[in-house]
Design a protein around this nucleic acid. Structure first.
Lengths: 141, 141
DNA sequence: TTAAACCTTCCCCTAACCGGAAGGTCAAGA
DNA sequence: TCTTGACCTTCCGGTTAGGGGAAGGTTTAA
């Protein structure tokens, strides 16, 4: 199987497959005499596993650790769970940060007339020293 | 005022001030005979404005647009509001994506014993073709 | 005079890719 | 048999928003 077939079957682009090989996430595969990479089903499964890790937001480094645990039959499920919980924590922090931003921006946007006039409470707030007072605001600043 | 003072007053590191100048986000400032950059209060305000945009998650490109509007007294507040609403939309999409990931991972994590044994429903789910069925799952897969 | 604390430019590194150029290979149809 | 198009290869550069550090010049205070 050529890299194009492996890409189609795994959902990982040929470009990315070469990249994963380059950075050591997957081992180098064998080649034809002409230098073409040859993939087996097991390689496609690995690529597919990585793709699913990426879809769930894991870093390539974490995906590599999970892939390693996946192939290690003497693994401890606690190690897997630890990686997952760390990632859930990262996601939660990002969600909270984005919600904080969105909350402030929504408040400010609601106060902006959004017309042809230059007056704009959003720009005022960006100029002022601190928007932390906008966290729980109900009325317009 | 040297770049170090501007950095302390604006909350933007000297490294980043030079970078913002290099990419054209802020204009080049004048220099001393020795080549040191000289900053005025107005420059510090601009840097501070950019920093606040970044704190709210705007890209440097958006920060540049907002900065330009801020300095343009014939602006239309609708243009400001448009940028902000676009960014709120981006944030909302990211929040939803992260929540989707976190939801799936939390479900899987709850099903993993997290002990010294190798059995792990998380790895099983990463191997299986599709986790979309985990969106609304209550019990363990 | 000297040492610390500045400043300058320059280059490399990050994560996870995408785009494209230049050139070699393979398979099918005329 | 030749050609054409679809593959494949490596290599290089760009993306975002910076961080780290080297090598060397400047300023200021003791």
């Amino acid at each position: 199987m050529n890299i194009g077939d492996a890409a189609r079957l795994s959902g990982v682009s040929a470009k990315m497959i070469r990249y994963y090989e380059e950075v050591g996430l997957i081992p180098s595969v064998s080649r034809t005499e002409a230098g073409y990479r040859i993939y087996k089903d097991a390689d496609v499964y690995k690529l597919h596993f990585i793709r699913r890790c990426r879809d769930l937001g894991f870093s390539l480094s974490q995906a590599g650790e999970l892939l390693s645990l996946w192939g290690n039959h003497s693994r401890q499920s606690a190690d897997v769970k630890s990686i997952v919980e760390s990632h859930i924590n990262d996601l939660t922090l990002k969600i909270e940060e984005f919600q904080r931003m969105a909350s402030i921006l929504t408040t400010l946007s609601a106060c902006c007339a959004g017309n042809e006039k230059p007056d704009c409470p959003i720009l005022k707030a960006l100029y002022l020293a601190d928007t932390s007072h906008l966290q729980d605001i109900e009325s317009c600043p």
